[in-house]
């Protein structure tokens, strides 16, 4: 396992592990889990977002060929998920959301067993098993039965079994589910480190902050449909051309600065934050040199001057209210 470096951006738009879904409909009895879902998923670390029951897990299972499609098709690296599911699964790692470990095995037995089932030789599987258990941070406990593990340790073993055969594409379904804050941090760090090795990772989660931190691309699903997708930077970019400015100074200076600022560019929003601080949302100020000049001229201190940016939570909420825009 290569673990050096960090990086999580979705990289290419074409490649052997690119996924695409076209008009996919999956139904369980009366329940429509995916309803004409269409998406083109690039390589990199991808966040699959949506509320509970949105169809995230169903999409993952459908990609693995584990649920039948009523309509449409899913292509994984150019292979059809229904007709060529076994070939697809050869190079995929899957970390399910729910508890799925074999309780009567130790993690060493389980992970090496899964490696062998994936086609590795007994010796290679055992060697690789120790490597991945070291990587996920399972120490001497690896020789204890899995049923005695904490939730966090079980999550790590689930990740270890998913990467033991070194797949190029990983599906992680709610990887931090049931973990404490420290465990979450560790898990996100592991995802980031695996992503840095160039693998494509699809992280299904409803915890937006986690996706925001590790993913380079996000796909938002609701009621079985794609509601928004794009690069994280583009999704979270605020209104185009809008800059947020925070300045500090005495009341008179701030007032004079505001007047001068209003003359130089358009002030969209203005807020007095008290204690001698004010914030503005401005447009049409060029590269900002003029603002720094004005600040110097009026004796105020520029605390921050950044492009407008919204949180993934805002993107998510806008998506469900039908607003906002997709990323590139």
């Amino acid at each position: 396992m290569t673990t050096a470096g960090e990086g999580s951006a979705a990289t290419g738009t074409t490649g052997p592990h690119r996924l695409s879904a076209k008009d996919v409909t999956v139904r369980f009895g009366q329940v429509v889990a995916l309803n004409g879902f269409t998406a083109d998923i690039p390589e990199g670390v991808i966040g699959l977002l949506g509320p509970n029951g949105a169809g995230k897990s169903t999409f993952i299972k459908a990609s693995l060929g584990l649920v039948p499609l009523e309509r449409g098709s899913i292509s994984v690296g150019g292979l059809d998920s229904q007709a060529e599911s076994l070939r697809i699964r050869d190079d995929i790692g899957y970390m399910p959301e729910h508890d799925c470990l074999i309780p009567s095995m130790s993690s060493v037995e389980l992970v090496s067993y899964m490696g062998q089932i994936s086609g590795m030789g007994q010796r290679d599987a055992m060697q690789r098993c120790h490597e991945v258990l070291d990587f996920v941070g399972i120490g001497e406990e690896r020789y204890r039965l899995v049923k005695s593990y904490s939730t966090g340790m079980k999550q790590k073993v689930k990740l270890a079994q998913a990467i033991v055969h070194d797949p190029a594409l990983l599906f992680l379904d709610e990887p931090t589910s049931g973990m404490d804050p420290n465990g979450r941090e560790e898990m996100l760090d592991l995802v980031r480190r695996i992503g840095a090795t160039g693998k494509t990772i699809i992280v299904s989660s409803h915890i937006l902050q986690e996706v925001e931190r590790v993913c380079g691309h996000a796909i938002i699903i609701s009621e079985g449909r794609l509601v928004r997708d794009g690069k994280m930077g583009a999704l979270m970019a605020g209104e185009e051309g809008l800059q947020n400015l925070t300045v500090r100074g005495d009341a008179k200076a701030l007032e004079a600065f505001a007047r001068a600022l209003g003359a130089a560019c358009t002030i969209v929003r203005k807020a007095d934050e008290g204690v001698g601080q004010a914030s503005f949302s401005v447009r049409g100020c060029g590269d900002g040199r003029g603002i720094f000049g004005l600040a110097r001229e009026h004796g105020v201190q520029v605390r921050s001057y950044t492009p407008d940016r919204i949180s993934l939570e805002d993107v998510f909420l806008q998506a469900f209210q039908g607003g906002g825009r997709s990323g590139d």
Partner: peptide, 22 residues
């Protein structure tokens, strides 16, 4: 007795069938 029931109870099927196992 436990060969399939244990996999049913622990939902371990998915570990086998997310791999190229028929």
């Amino acid at each position: 007795s436990d060969l399939i029931s244990e996999d049913l109870a622990g939902r371990s099927f998915v570990l086998y069938f997310s791999r190229a196992v028929k």
